[in-house]
Design a protein around this nucleic acid. Sequence first.
DNA 1: TTGAAAGCGGTACCAG
DNA 2: CTGGTACCGCTTTCAA
Lengths: 334, 334
Amino acid sequence: MKLIDVANKAGVSVTTVSRVLNGDQNVKTSTRTRVQRAMQDLKYYPNLHARSLARGQSKTLGVLVSNLDNPFFLDIYRRFEALALGSGYDTVVSATHYHPDQLRASLRSMLGRRVAGIAAFVSEMEPSLIDELSHVEIPVVFYDVGRVGKRITNIRSNYQQGMRQLVEHLRMLGHRRMAFIAYPLALQPTEERRTTFLEVTEQLGVSAHVVLAHSEEFSGGRSATRELLSSGFEPTAILCVNDITAVGVLKELHEQGVLVPQQISVAGFDNILLGQFTIPSLTTIHIPRDRIAELAFQALAPSWPNHAKQGQEVLVDLELILRKSTAPPPTESA
Amino acid sequence: MKLIDVANKAGVSVTTVSRVLNGDQNVKTSTRTRVQRAMQDLKYYPNLHARSLARGQSKTLGVLVSNLDNPFFLDIYRRFEALALGSGYDTVVSATHYHPDQLRASLRSMLGRRVAGIAAFVSEMEPSLIDELSHVEIPVVFYDVGRVGKRITNIRSNYQQGMRQLVEHLRMLGHRRMAFIAYPLALQPTEERRTTFLEVTEQLGVSAHVVLAHSEEFSGGRSATRELLSSGFEPTAILCVNDITAVGVLKELHEQGVLVPQQISVAGFDNILLGQFTIPSLTTIHIPRDRIAELAFQALAPSWPNHAKQGQEVLVDLELILRKSTAPPPTESA
DNA sequence: TTGAAAGCGGTACCAG
DNA sequence: CTGGTACCGCTTTCAA
């Protein structure tokens, strides 16, 4: 079922059909109706490939995400998609599962699709890929990786500021021995959280200890906690690279009969919805995902109000969210 | 950067470039190398739209999901995508957020993209849409909605069998008053869970009570629980339409000081990963998502081992997963 | 082993 | 207000 079939059925030219298809006003109402009827009767819908080919561009935005399992990324994507949809853009996502190869493949596929722009919320972005992207003629926006360039916008979280708030809060409560559960992969953003933790604890004079989770899942938090508890460090507070990990920590502590927050305080990072429903609810650092998604979209969509954002670096501030998983440490009577 | 640019640079015709692009063996090795060099130098990557247009089909499978926030759907999608990728298919997802309009739009977009097949894991599929789909010339597979047709495969969960196991288990434990927290939307699959609950409890002679959550999120479980506790029904076990809801229930009960499972048992449905990390871990019904994804893929991919599945209805059995959130009810000494 | 040329299904410019 | 037609970039006969 093609344009010409509709044209024949309606007794007009393909041009006219194309016009009504695209809402061109220069079509007599009676003709328009006739064409629309024909389209319906034939159950016609346009071939998007032909259209994009002819137009030379595709009103599609590509979104790259490391991991859709983490609600953090999903939240960003959802908001981004909503904005895109609202402006008539289609959206195509690809989860790379932290594999540079998969990332490369997804990227090629998107470029092949001639997307109008690419938003990359991935942690495994390699320099070579960033290079490759900077030669491309479409706008690109990175989150937490990459660098600013001609058409490249960069959004970054102010980890320093966020982590400081959290550590200061805990210190204020009286904590002096804090552990950090880090990610197993050497990914820029998560590495940054770890190093920031180390810096801040050093500055504030609290003793710090880092242990690596060996999975990005809940279970990573669990096993890391086991390891931590038998390490001899005896932290009074455990900070986690993200909320998912913290859920695992909470679970393991509960199984071991350790009370949170009475005996050990726990904090997450990201502020995913689940954190409000854990037992106890989770103190965490909020990363404003809606705002990040909005900034990203603005950087990709031309003719957007404050589209000026393109080609810049934007630093996003984080916010400490206090809930029930943190409290003063037990008084050391020993 | 187009085919012809590469051809010029390499001093061959576009045909030849196309050949090396598609791995055609009838190209002299030296020529092939020259062309490949040219492609690299020019950072060429093919325009997928032109390709699909010329080929008349697109090695892309469309996946429709109600809601990516629910790990249940995400798990299915992840597996499906992996299989597709393994067979050289691209995949495009669309979350409909339970809106028939959004579903319709996504469907059109996919058909416009001339996908090679569509897998619909959506609850809001309307009869009219199913009709529309049956006229399309590509294979389609539905999960929990729709009906079998020429190129239409149907996968269904055996809710009857799953729900019966759960209710029997609880009855065996001694429970006689069970409440069910249902979904707010009138969606076929979730409705089915509700009615099945009612049937089974009736058959087993246990008194039943249904309360509607007013959100599909964790919070829906929380508020429904509040409502339930003040309803006077006093259930000894609460069954939930899914695990997400159950997490909210667990939270609310904990806040109210009700011990799970000592005072009230709680069960979920779906068996998402999170259920292993709740406090207490969640008894639930496992729906074999991997298998569902595999069946779906088989139904769409031609030249697949047991591709015979197409145009059939497949019923998938569920499995009771016993964890720590269910136990005998408190002995009524009153 | 290579190339010329006819589409694929739309879009958009140029006439009328 | 409507139609003719030259592309868009790649695939695929058909010939050489």
